[in-house]
């Protein structure tokens, strides 16, 4: 089922001045329910603009954004409710923390929704569990947490609104490997628990290969590729031409095939490669 449809959307910054910059040019994509969609592209490819369109922070200059088949800008006054249904986690979200305690900060979104206190508490605890934040952190000041914990608290603040679509812009940027994994695991748990459509923006092809079902490749403000993981990664030469590269494992598989080894080209993660290669080696020992 399609959750969000982006139809022929375009956007230009500083339109009509000499500084005019095209951010999105006739972009059409579809985001499915129960699916993790990855958006890949260079800095300046229009990703950030697109991400802020899903929840109505940026209004398209032409084209439409449909949420469950309805144009979100049909009634501009009710754009606020769209922001609760489509949760957006911006880059480095820990810089938005401001309350005295972690629990109050995570409650900020649900409170703005006008939920009653019991429901807020329930959602906050649920969100903490999803992102893997210990409950004894809740009474601390958000500024006393470690970098990775702050990030998780900020993501929990959006999850606590229980959005039907969760959009995350570079959720793991700047974290160490352990921190990265815990963030992505939390996102996956949210997707599994709620069936929400999840959209992840990332530079890392390896993370994309590991977590995403569908992929959108943006290049020079246009959709260069859109399809499932297999469809996109099979066009590895084009990806390299855009300068994005392919997952490291896919690169390894390409090298093996070049050497005449019969291995399926549709392998993107360590686990998949391990299984395939073990089979080639006769199932290991």
């Amino acid at each position: 089922m399609s959750k969000i449809k982006v139809e022929n959307v375009s956007f230009v910054y500083s339109a009509g001045t000499p500084f005019e910059v095209k951010a999105l040019d006739d972009v059409t994509i579809e985001i499915k329910e129960n699916t993790i969609t990855g958006i890949i592209g260079h800095t300046g490819s229009g990703k950030s603009t697109l991400v802020q369109m899903f929840n109505g922070l940026v209004k398209p200059m032409s084209g439409r954004i449909l949420l469950d088949g309805e144009d979100i800008w049909e009634k501009p006054k009710s754009i606020g409710s769209v922001r609760y249904r489509v949760g957006l986690v911006m880059q480095y979200p820990e810089y938005q923390l401001f309350e005295d305690t972690v629990i109050e900060d995570i409650s900020f979104g649900p409170k703005n929704m006008g939920l009653d206190p019991d429901e807020i508490k329930k959602r906050v605890l649920e969100a903490c569990e999803l992102v893997g934040l210990d409950f004894d952190m809740l009474s601390k000041s958000p500024f006393d947490l470690s970098g990775g914990q702050k990030r998780r608290a900020a993501i929990a603040g959006v999850m606590a609104m229980r959005p039907e679509v969760l959009v995350l812009d570079e959720p793991a940027a700047g974290l160490d490997p352990a921190g990265r994994n815990s963030i992505f695991d939390g996102i996956k748990r949210y997707a599994d628990a709620t069936g929400a459509a999840v959209i992840i923006v990332s530079h890392s092809m390896d993370d994309m290969a590991k977590y995403c079902d569908e992929l959108v490749v943006l290049s020079h403000s246009k959709v260069a590729m859109f399809g499932n993981r297999k469809e996109v990664f099979s066009r590895s030469r084009e990806l390299e031409a855009i300068g994005l590269g392919v997952p490291q494992i896919t690169r390894l598989v390409m090298l093996l095939r070049d050497k005449g080894i019969e291995i399926s080209p549709d392998i993107y993660t360590v686990d998949e490669a391990e299984t395939a290669l073990a089979a080639l080696f006769g199932g290991g020992v």
């Binding site: 802020q52 929840n55 922070l57 606020g80 922001r83 609760y84 949760g87 957006l88 986690v89 911006m90 880059q91 979200p93 810089y95 938005q96 900020f108 979104g109 703005n112 929704m113 603040g157 959006v158 609104m161």
Partner: peptide
């Protein structure tokens, strides 16, 4: 630039 970013982030959490 940072102010704009933080405002967007809080708007996304329903700030008006």
């Amino acid at each position: 630039e940072e102010t704009e970013k933080i405002m967007s982030a809080q708007k996304a959490r329903g700030a008006d």
